[in-house]
Computed example of a mutant assay.
Amino acid sequence: MFKEKTIVLGITGSVAAYKAADLASRLVQAGAAVEVIMTESAQKFIAPLTLRALTNRQPVTSMWQDANKFSIEHVSLADAADAVLIAPATANTIARLACGLADDILSSTVLATRAPVIIAPAMNCNMYENAATQANIAALKSRGFTFVEPESGRLACGAEGKGRLAAAEVILAALDAVLNRKNDLAGRSIVVTAGGTREPLDPVRYVGNRSSGKMGYALAAAARDRGASVRLVSTVDMPDSSGLSVIRVETAAQMLEAVRDAVKGADALIMAAAVADFRPSTVAGDKIKKGATSLDLKLEPTPDILSEVKGDFVRVGFAAETVDLIGNAKKKLAGKNLDLIVANDVTAPDSSFGAETNMVTLLFKDGHAEDLPLMPKRAVAEKILDYLAVRLS
């Protein structure tokens, strides 16, 4: 997917710098010409020789280096790039780019290039969450830079939190999406739902599910990037919602009303949200105290949004199942009169709620099916939108 593309890979001084070697190798295997730029601090973590062996090109480490044809005239490197990928990107590098500095070969290249820039941060969780870093990220996003969110987990410093470099598959999927950005949904209006609904039990507690909303947000962002006007009905907040019309809801009933309003004039509805099937029959006005030895709950069905919302638009649903994946998905496909249903086994470790990846089967109204391999949720979203673009045309 990167054949004959020139990718400038910027590596900065993070302990995750060793992971850039894997990225470089994968890009070369995919047919890209990889020009590596290493900051001075990056060379403390990984040797330029490693990147030279993987790319068959001498990494650029200085503004005044003679070994590479792009070294002295950094504008040439900026012009040659089809994309600039900075992975890992430290808080310091992000801050310098946000300020528009050009005092080394990496910052100079970024400032001079007209190619898209993709940034994959990696740093201590407190540094990432610091207001200054978040402001710098927001500033760069507003200028069109693409960010690949870091993962949460145990960091090299021993802390637990968000700051670990995203998986190579996720970074490369983001790079692919940017390089091969389509505009085939321009002029289309698409409604997407995301997250799991919360059905209140009392003012404090609720009945819900483990849906993170990541798949819905991936669909909304991908549709936006392909030119669509997107209305996102969501129960959760996500960082990159720029360019989306977001309607926040909590319950299934609220989502039903929001979707009914949003689909007016829409070309498609993609129901990626995990809507609770049941809700408490009565909601306590005050917090239920723990005094009793047991608590009996009476539940009633929630409204079936896909069945109740009518209109002349393409209908895409999701089936998150734990048993008989295909059988249950086919029943929903027919019972809800869908054009496409996306079947997902949520017991699979890399396809569970909250995972960054997904492995799904697409079941179509005409009876055919397509099994997709394990891939980042954004890549799954692009596959769904590929179908939608053809269907709408």
Rank of each mutant, 00 (worst) to 15 (best):
E151M: 03
V283Y: 12
L388A: 01
D104Y: 10
L9N: 02
L256F: 14
D22K: 09
E257R: 14
F278N: 14
A78S: 11
S281Q: 15
R52A: 00
L85R: 00
T109I: 12
S71T: 15
G31Q: 08
D286Q: 08
S76V: 11
A228S: 10
P203W: 04
A53R: 02
S242I: 04
V323T: 15
R181T: 12
N92V: 12
E250L: 14
L51K: 00
G144F: 02
E199N: 02
D261V: 14
V170M: 09
R205F: 14
D103M: 09
A253K: 06
A33M: 14
V236Y: 05
Y217Q: 10
A168D: 12
I326A: 13
V178I: 08
A228M: 05
G195K: 01
D386V: 01
R224I: 02
E4R: 13
L111S: 09
G311A: 15
A98R: 09
S41Q: 02
R260A: 13
K331Y: 13
D312F: 11
V316N: 07
I118A: 06
T282L: 13
D240A: 05
D184F: 11
K69P: 05
M38Y: 00
V178W: 02
A21Y: 01
L85Q: 01
A268G: 15
A139E: 12
D296H: 05
R391G: 02
A120F: 01
D104N: 14
L85S: 01
I86S: 00
P280Y: 13
T197A: 10
S241N: 10
G13W: 00
A174R: 09
G243Y: 12
A272G: 06
L363D: 10
A252E: 03
L297C: 03
A21N: 03
K5V: 08
F145P: 00
P239S: 04
L306F: 04
L363A: 12
V170T: 13
A379P: 00
V309R: 08
A334N: 03
P200S: 08
I37R: 02
V230I: 09
T197M: 11
P280L: 14
C157M: 07
T12S: 13
I305N: 09
V323R: 09
T93W: 05
Q58S: 11
F147K: 03
E370L: 07
I247Q: 06
I72Y: 05
A83M: 08
R96F: 06
Q58T: 04
T322D: 07
G227E: 04
G158E: 05
S294C: 01
V170K: 07
A166S: 14
E300R: 05
A32C: 08
A122I: 08
D176Y: 11
A348T: 10
S245C: 11
L54P: 02
R143Y: 09
R210T: 12
E160I: 15
V15P: 01
A122W: 00
V170N: 08
N337R: 07
K383F: 06
Y387E: 01
L175C: 09
K332P: 03
R205G: 15
L338W: 00
K3S: 06
L363Q: 10
A369S: 13
D324M: 10
V191R: 02
